[in-house]
Nucleic acid binder design. Structure first.
Length: 451
RNA sequence: CGGGGUGUAGCUCAGCCUGGUAGAGCGCCAGCUUUGGGAGCUGGAUGCCGGAGGUUCGAAUCCUCUCGCCCCGACCA
């Protein structure tokens, strides 16, 4: 069976996206809920629980069930592809770290109770990593010795833990979360700025591929230090923070790649930093007010860690050079929740096709009816063979249950085959996004879905 | 970490005030009838009533302690 398809990216050297196996709902582990669990407050949390994507195991800690895991992997893969395309190289660093390197940077004591501290059997002080600057700096300094090996951008996608006092909003604000972190190493500020711009543009592409509008906001570098810093917020009505931005951003974004200098002149801030009297605030008719969810954060922090941890390379003149660093995060697991916040209605989720757990949901309205069974099996087989990710609802359930579940889990396309339609030679194709339904022959439906 | 809630069946919840040995709806299992947007009837299974201690002849219910979870705030991707 065809399990791989060419990557849709323009660049031919990108890896291929592994496809999801076709699946029958009669065997799929997807425990949907008709009622909303009491603990879930916001839409994405409610829907992710109801759709059987995740289950909480402790406060802010979740198991990912097949449906949720598929989405998480797709998001992860888009992030990975865009990082690779930008020239970053993937590594994998451990979740458990030694306290020693955190003492070198001075953060072991500075970091509060959010750091989960662990003692091993030999009484060594360990911790479950809340972030990885120390680890990557150590990795770099131990293995890179010359300026000629720079610039470098390394990244990893790994689980992290921050012992938040009050986890909430499901996977959007969990204690354990999957993050992509990139770290750039350059010989000077100019280089660091170029790395920053490369990541900046990679982020715009990454979020766009997920169907999201991501607005880079000027961010306070805060405790990390440095003077180049942007938070990427995606727009969602139920977003956690208010955002204000110049409508010119939308015009720029439509053009694709955005020039950082052009962008940095635009006004775009979250509500706590909004200053109506700031010099570059656009007039009211050009100031967009919306709500956003932070899904990425990039910043340049210079030599903060390289200096403290002695990450130096030999410069052109033979003298040691303290490397200039930046770090670039994307909340991968948080994005799952954020995308649901951005794309849902009162019936359920509406996945953008690029991250949908399956592309098509096939509903057999009357299991046991030989016409329905035959046609559905045929569709299932042919779409599977064509590499179209399909979830076939072959359960012996009532129509209403199937429609409700399919709307809930939000696959982009629903293909409905029932006795009445088949008698007339048609099946129904419904777009979950627009709600538009169309009756057409099996052949044309297949043609549409294979495209 | 401050403040406020809450814990009873897989899910949503009633019962607690006023102690007498556990319920409803949905879900699950079986059968029949249904069948194009979360069906109807009949029958059935499921609970150490979060845990420990105490009061009492008797505790889901009252008291003490404890743990989990949720909400507001502070904090954060």
């Amino acid at each position: 069976m065809e399990r791989w398809r060419p990557c849709p990216c323009p660049s031919p050297c990108l890896p291929r996206i592994p496809k999801e196996n076709p699946m029958r709902l009669s065997v799929f582990f997807m425990p949907t809920l008709k009622e909303t669990p009491a603990e879930a407050q916001i839409a994405s949390h409610r829907l992710m629980l109801r759709a059987g994507m995740v289950r909480q195991s402790a406060a802010g800690i979740y198991s990912w069930l097949p449906l949720g895991w598929k989405v998480l992997r797709k998001i992860q893969q888009i992030v990975r592809e865009e990082q690779d395309a930008a020239g970053a190289q993937e590594v994998l660093m451990p979740t458990i770290q030694s306290a020693d390197i955190w003492r070198e940077s001075g953060r072991y004591d500075a970091y509060g109770k959010e750091m989960l501290r662990i003692t091993d059997r030999h009484d060594r002080e360990m911790l479950y990593g809340p972030t990885n600057e120390e680890l990557i700096t150590q990795l770099f300094r131990d293995n890179v010795k010359s300026y000629r090996e720079l610039p470098k951008i390394l990244y990893h996608i790994q689980w992290k833990f921050r012992d938040e006092v009050r986890p909430r909003f499901g996977v959007m604000r969990g204690r354990e979360f999957l993050m992509k972190d990139s770290y750039s190493f350059d010989v000077d500020y100019e280089g660091a700025k170029r790395s920053y711009e490369v990541m900046f543009n990679a982020y715009l592409k990454t979020f766009k591929r997920m169907g999201l509008t991501a607005i880079p906001m000027q961010a306070d570098p805060g405790a990390i230090g440095g003077n180049l810093s942007h938070e990427f917020h995606i727009l969602a009505e139920t977003g956690e923070s208010g955002v204000f931005y110049d409508i010119a951003y939308d015009e720029l974004a439509a053009k694709g790649e955005i020039d950082l200098d052009a962008l940095s002149r635009l006004y775009a801030v979250t509500d706590e930093k909004h200053d109506p009297n700031a010099p570059n605030v656009p007039p009211p008719e050009r100031l967009k007010v919306a709500r956003g969810i932070e899904v990425g954060h990039i910043f340049y922090f210079g030599t903060k860690y390289s200096k403290a941890m002695n990450a130096v390379v030999a410069g052109p003149d033979g003298n040691p050079l303290v490397v200039e660093m930046g770090s670039y995060g994307i909340g991968v697991s948080r994005l799952v929740g954020a995308i649901v916040e951005a794309f849902h209605d009162d019936r359920g989720i509406k996945w953008p096709e690029s991250v949908a757990p399956f592309k098509v949901g096939l509903i057999n309205l009357k299991v046991g009816d030989s016409a329905c069974d035959t046609v559905c099996e045929d569709i299932y087989r042919r779409l599977s063979a064509a590499g179209v990710e399909i979830l076939y609802d072959d359960r012996d359930e009532r129509a209403g249950v199937k429609f409700a579940d399919m709307d809930l889990i939000g696959l982009p396309w629903q293909l409905v085959a029932g006795p009445k339609g088949l008698a007339a030679g048609v099946v129904e194709l419904k777009s979950r996004h627009t709600g538009e339904k169309q009756e057409l022959s099996v052949e044309s439906a297949l043609a549409r879905l294979c495209g």
